Simulated scan of single mutants.
Amino acid sequence: MSTVPGADPLASLTVLEGIPSGFAATRDGVDAMLRDRGLRKTAPGLTTESLLRGAVASALLEGSTSTPEEIRAGASDETGQAAIRVSTEALSLVPTLRTAPLQAFARLHALAGKGAVDEERLGRPRDAEAAQGLRELSATLLAPTTAPAMLVAAIVHAQLATAAPFASHNGIVARAAERLVLVARGVDEKSLLVPEAAHLHLRAEYESNLRAYANAGGSNGVHAWLLYATEAYALAAEKSPVRD
């Protein structure tokens, strides 16, 4: 995804059929849920639980063979442990994501890949092409845009998941980055939505739309992914611990 200085890199996506209305409706539903629950006084434990639910779902999507109970208890396989490490530190990277997205992505991978890949590969792109892709994604995040924050989060997720710029754990990194964008851009400042659990619940659609995003070779796959994201983010609110 290339950017032109001074241009809105996501402008063309905001006029796709069904996208403005879809994201507006989803955001209204999320805002209503957060407002109606009086979440200005929400206990920190709800954020912790949301992050933990997200880690479990992300690990299972990444191929963990451990049970949700094992992942929650820290007694899982390597993939589950990677997801837990990322969830534990992810929110500390919100300020970094706002000003230096490349550093945030690198740190997410360093957390996820610890012990699984060589030290010198932690947080480093696989090759020159992957490095360029990360720079372009970073520039997109730093550029002014009129695109809804949820759309930005969905694009960051799909770009990282499909380009797989790191040596391992790209799905975990992509889903963590998505959550960070939702926090950093004011959609979900206390990180109470659980988009990872929504993607797990919609796993067939999630994986097929990511494949379409990667392989369509044009706007159709991107359009389909964004329409899917409006549904997933609505479900992410339903998966929130505040609904319990």
Rank of each mutant, 00 (worst) to 15 (best):
residue 35 R to V: 02
residue 18 G to V: 02
residue 41 K to W: 15
residue 57 A to W: 00
residue 69 E to Y: 08
residue 35 R to Y: 12
residue 72 R to K: 14
residue 140 T to M: 14
residue 133 G to E: 04
residue 19 I to D: 00
residue 122 L to S: 03
residue 114 K to E: 15
residue 99 T to E: 09
residue 27 R to E: 13
residue 32 A to T: 06
residue 123 G to N: 06
residue 128 A to C: 04
residue 130 A to E: 05
residue 41 K to V: 11
residue 124 R to F: 07
residue 8 D to Q: 08
residue 78 E to K: 14
residue 70 E to H: 12
residue 31 D to V: 15
residue 82 A to I: 02
residue 91 L to I: 09
residue 58 S to Y: 00
residue 50 S to Y: 04
residue 26 T to Y: 01
residue 79 T to M: 14
residue 20 P to L: 01
residue 78 E to D: 15
residue 26 T to V: 09
residue 78 E to P: 04
residue 80 G to W: 04
residue 27 R to C: 04
residue 28 D to N: 10
residue 93 L to E: 09
residue 122 L to I: 06
residue 33 M to R: 07
residue 106 A to M: 09
residue 79 T to S: 07
residue 94 V to K: 12
residue 72 R to M: 13
residue 67 T to Q: 13
residue 76 S to I: 10
residue 112 A to E: 03
residue 85 R to T: 02
residue 105 F to K: 03
residue 90 A to L: 15
residue 121 R to E: 07
residue 107 R to M: 08
residue 55 A to E: 03
residue 133 G to T: 10
residue 120 E to N: 13
residue 98 R to M: 13
residue 129 E to D: 15
residue 56 V to K: 07
residue 136 E to F: 05
residue 39 L to A: 04
residue 81 Q to L: 15
residue 30 V to H: 05
residue 142 L to Y: 01
residue 26 T to D: 03
residue 60 L to V: 14
residue 15 V to T: 03
residue 51 L to S: 12
residue 15 V to I: 05
residue 125 P to R: 05
residue 57 A to D: 07
residue 62 E to V: 08
residue 74 G to P: 04
residue 125 P to V: 09
residue 70 E to D: 15
residue 89 E to K: 14
residue 101 P to N: 06
residue 74 G to M: 12
residue 118 D to L: 07
residue 51 L to M: 12
residue 73 A to K: 05
residue 7 A to K: 05
residue 61 L to R: 05
residue 23 F to T: 05
residue 133 G to S: 12
residue 116 A to Q: 13
residue 135 R to F: 05
residue 8 D to P: 02
residue 89 E to W: 07
residue 43 A to E: 06
residue 9 P to E: 02
residue 42 T to K: 06
residue 83 A to D: 01
